[in-house]
Design a protein around this nucleic acid. Structure first.
Length: 560
RNA sequence: GGCCGCUUAGUCAAACGGUUAAGACGUCGCCCUCUCACGGCGAAGAUAGGAGUUCGAUUCUCCUAGUGGUCACCA
């Protein structure tokens, strides 16, 4: 077959050559050891937690080596594209502190533009480039067209591919596919001409030289040395709309864009031989690969499953809605990335995570379970080191997006809110009351009239006792008392009622008293905060002010 | 089903072939304490199973099991 002629027949509109593109996109001039990495999502509308994991690896490896981190939008599947998704990805990543040096970015008018000389970075805009390389492969006899009739297309294939995986007769269908593949290879120039003349679309397939019985040795930077079967399948390079498949776009783009390290999920491992074959066919040097383990969850049977987008915590937006500060999620991610991160962070509590040297060697080879407990712990620690003003600003920003009435309250009672957030903050052993802004709201809500309500009951005590204690407390209260005097008065009330004012004595002989000073405190606490648990009451009263405090106490015992 | 990956406590994970098999989260207990939170101390809890190599195996090899991925004109 005259492949020169075939190439012209198939791609008459392609006039450029691969040399033109090689000249347009020269190799990068970077210092020794600088890594070029990229995030290459398909624009499906959100950033997955596992994707963020890969972003962190790529961003850190690039930036700590003086390299380049860029964004490429893999929108080769028009069916799955979501409007505005690319912009969403950029905003989300920026929100989490991952900035791109190059690639797809948001332009003046809000549309996606390319930064740097290696664009465009939307694959749908690179059709001509791919086709130029495809034409070269055809010319060299390494690829050929397949014209398929409409009925063979989508439905027949797409449907049973997914659904019949379990019941499928694998060896029979493999044999069938093999036969068809071999038959397709036999296409003649005349047939091609006839099909094209009839206006029939074609897909371009690679002409594989691989032998499935043989193995290729590959090295993955995370998994180590691997032996995988050679690719013996004539997989599709260009779809019938002229847009490449992932495989072909990956080879062309990562070559042209100078990617040194490809970071992607381990689900790509089985197709690695395809990619290596392509790089070889195209005469490209293959990048280094990092196939990352997946982030998993436990299903109802106790099996590990991929975090699906329905699972809480799968989308980065989930954390915003829940009210996790971005830095906390990043910190948690860092602990998953390199297990020595926590140790490092404990030794360098004031340094930002960007100072931590991420090492490829310490990346996990096995999938890890997402753990909200751990995230919460990390988050509580991070928040506990913030100032009250910082917390206030964060909570206000969160509330503006997710809880407008609360945002209004916060603005009205700004001083009070900051004072409340200041409780237990700033010392050597700060309180760790909340991991999210939603929890922060719960923590301080009773300070505000609109949110104050009696939520807990006092059980096991006579109404008369509660009334008497609160009335005495109200009568004896003086705004000028310090904390010691304040508590001495509470103790005095306890004694007047026959309650024990010393906890040690009470514990030694609990049956001797109707209650203890802690119980008196509980009466005051519930009246004041509506809850049986709260921070230090003296401080709470200072913040509320004596007028409002006493009004709450009064109305509580009046209502009994 | 073929191929490939993975397997140390509930979770995340350390351990040049030699340790009493770290640490963190979670759980439980005690202490501190007016409740909560913090903090301190402590406890329970693991090398998937079986062979082999070796003086010695969590570590190397093989087998088994479990588990995950993949086998598209999706990425």
């Amino acid at each position: 077959m005259n492949t020169e002629l075939l190439a012209e027949l198939l791609f008459p509109q392609i006039t450029k050559t691969v040399e033109d593109y090689e000249a347009q996109y020269p190799p990068r001039n970077l210092p020794e050891g600088a890594k070029v990495t990229r995030f290459a999502p398909s624009p499906t509308g959100f950033v997955h937690f596992g994707g963020m994991y890969q972003v962190m690896i790529g961003e850190r490896l690039a930036h700590q080596s003086g390299g380049v981190f860029f964004l490429r939008i893999e929108d080769t599947d028009a069916k799955r594209e979501v409007e505005g998704a690319a912009q969403g990805v950029i905003r989300t990543l920026s929100h989490y502190g991952a900035e791109f040096d190059e690639g797809a970015s948001i332009g003046e008018d809000g549309s996606i533009v390319s930064k740097g000389i290696y664009g465009p970075h939307k694959q749908s805009q690179r059709a001509e480039i791919y086709q130029t390389y495809a034409k070269k492969l055809v010319k060299e006899g390494k690829a050929y067209p397949v014209f398929t009739t409409a009925e063979e297309l989508e439905e027949a294939l797409a449907v049973d591919k997914k659904t019949e995986n379990k019941t499928k007769d694998w060896s029979a269908s493999a044999e069938e596919a093999r036969k068809e593949m071999l038959a397709n290879r036999e296409i003649t120039l005349e047939q091609v001409q006839a099909e094209l003349a009839a206006g029939n679309p074609f897909v371009l397939r690679i002409l594989s030289d691989g032998d499935g019985e043989k193995k290729v040795k590959v090295v993955d930077q995370i998994k180590g040395a691997l032996e995988l079967p050679e690719n013996d399948e004539d997989f599709v390079l260009l779809k019938s709309d002229g847009i490449p498949t992932y495989h072909f776009a990956h080879a062309v783009d990562d070559h042209l864009m100078g990617t040194t390290h490809v970071i992607r999920g381990e689900e790509w491992l089985p197709s690695l031989p395809k990619h290596l074959q392509l790089f070889r066919y195209l005469g490209f040097r293959a990048p280094k690969y990092l196939h990352t383990a997946q982030v998993l969850r436990l299903d109802e049977n106790g099996n590990k499953k991929k975090l699906s987008k329905r699972d809480m915590g799968a989308k980065m937006e989930d954390y915003d809605a829940l009210g996790y500060p971005p830095v906390c999620v990043i910190e948690y991610l860092m602990t998953l990335l390199n297990s020595n991160y926590e140790e490092w962070h404990a030794a360098n509590p004031t340094l930002p995570y960007t100072e931590f040297p991420v090492t490829i060697k310490k990346l996990s080879t096995s999938g890890c379970l997402f753990d909200f407990d751990k995230l919460n712990d990390v988050s509580k620690n991070v928040i506990s080191r913030m100032t009250a003003e910082e917390v206030y600003d964060y909570v206000l920003a969160w509330a503006k997006d997710y809880d407008a009435p609360f945002a209004e309250t916060l603005e009205t009672y700004k001083e009070r809110a900051i004072a409340a957030f200041a409780i237990g903050r700033g010392g050597k052993k700060p309180r760790k009351d909340f991991a999210t802004w939603a929890e922060a709201k719960k923590f301080i809500s009773f300070f505000f009239p609109a949110y104050f309500a009696i939520e807990d009951e006092i059980n096991g005590f006579a109404k008369e006792d509660i009334k008497a204690a609160l009335a005495k407390f109200e009568a004896g209260y003086s705004a000028s008392d310090d904390a010691t005097v304040w508590f001495d008065k509470v103790k005095a009330i306890a004694e007047e009622l026959g309650y024990c004012s010393n906890m040690k004595e009470y514990k030694a002989n609990p049956d001797a008293y109707p209650g203890n000073v802690g119980d008196i405190s509980t009466f005051i606490r519930v009246a004041l905060t509506g809850r049986t648990n709260s921070p230090d009451l003296y401080t709470v009263m200072q913040i509320l002010g004596s007028e409002e405090s006493l009004a709450r106490i009064h109305s509580y015992y009046e209502g009994l």
